[in-house]
Lab assay of single mutants.
Amino acid sequence: IDVRFTVNGLDVTVRVRTEEIAERVKELAKNGVDWREIQRIAEELNK
């Protein structure tokens, strides 16, 4: 599942395995978490 969001004007796409992880990623993006941090968290959750 590809999750797309915009952080500080940057369009970011993170690929995740499940809808649940996708929701977590969207939540982080909404809360203004840095995209590199979101990427790292997504990689952890995908394991």
Score class of each variant (00 low, 15 high):
residue 1 I to A: 03
residue 1 I to H: 08
residue 1 I to F: 13
residue 2 D to R: 03
residue 2 D to L: 08
residue 2 D to I: 07
residue 2 D to Y: 08
residue 3 V to Y: 01
residue 3 V to C: 06
residue 3 V to L: 13
residue 3 V to G: 01
residue 4 R to M: 13
residue 4 R to C: 11
residue 5 F to Q: 05
residue 5 F to Y: 04
residue 6 T to H: 15
residue 6 T to W: 05
residue 7 V to A: 11
residue 7 V to F: 07
residue 7 V to E: 15
residue 7 V to C: 07
residue 9 G to V: 01
residue 9 G to L: 03
residue 10 L to H: 14
residue 10 L to T: 14
residue 11 D to K: 07
residue 12 V to M: 12
residue 14 V to R: 00
residue 14 V to W: 01
residue 14 V to P: 00
residue 14 V to D: 00
residue 14 V to S: 00
residue 14 V to E: 00
residue 14 V to H: 01
residue 14 V to Q: 01
residue 15 R to Q: 12
residue 15 R to L: 05
residue 16 V to G: 01
residue 16 V to D: 00
residue 17 R to G: 09
residue 17 R to M: 15
residue 17 R to C: 07
residue 18 T to Y: 03
residue 18 T to E: 02
residue 18 T to N: 12
residue 18 T to Q: 02
residue 18 T to K: 02
residue 19 E to W: 07
residue 19 E to Q: 12
residue 19 E to D: 11
residue 19 E to K: 10
residue 20 E to Y: 06
residue 20 E to V: 11
residue 21 I to H: 10
residue 21 I to A: 09
residue 21 I to M: 08
residue 21 I to L: 06
residue 21 I to E: 06
residue 23 E to S: 11
residue 23 E to F: 08
residue 23 E to A: 12
residue 23 E to K: 12
residue 23 E to D: 12
residue 24 R to V: 14
residue 24 R to N: 07
residue 24 R to Q: 11
residue 24 R to T: 14
residue 27 E to Q: 12
residue 27 E to M: 08
residue 28 L to I: 06
residue 29 A to Q: 07
residue 29 A to D: 03
residue 30 K to C: 10
residue 30 K to N: 12
residue 31 N to P: 02
residue 31 N to E: 13
residue 31 N to H: 11
residue 32 G to T: 05
residue 32 G to Q: 09
residue 33 V to K: 08
residue 33 V to Y: 09
residue 34 D to M: 05
residue 34 D to T: 06
residue 34 D to H: 09
residue 35 W to R: 05
residue 35 W to V: 14
residue 36 R to H: 15
residue 36 R to N: 15
residue 36 R to M: 15
residue 37 E to N: 06
residue 37 E to L: 05
residue 37 E to K: 06
residue 38 I to N: 00
residue 38 I to G: 00
residue 39 Q to K: 12
residue 40 R to W: 09
residue 40 R to Q: 12
residue 42 A to M: 08
residue 42 A to Q: 01
residue 43 E to F: 03
residue 43 E to L: 07
residue 43 E to V: 09
residue 43 E to N: 11
residue 43 E to P: 01
residue 44 E to H: 13
residue 44 E to T: 09
residue 44 E to A: 11
residue 46 N to Q: 03
residue 46 N to F: 03
residue 47 K to P: 04
residue 47 K to C: 11
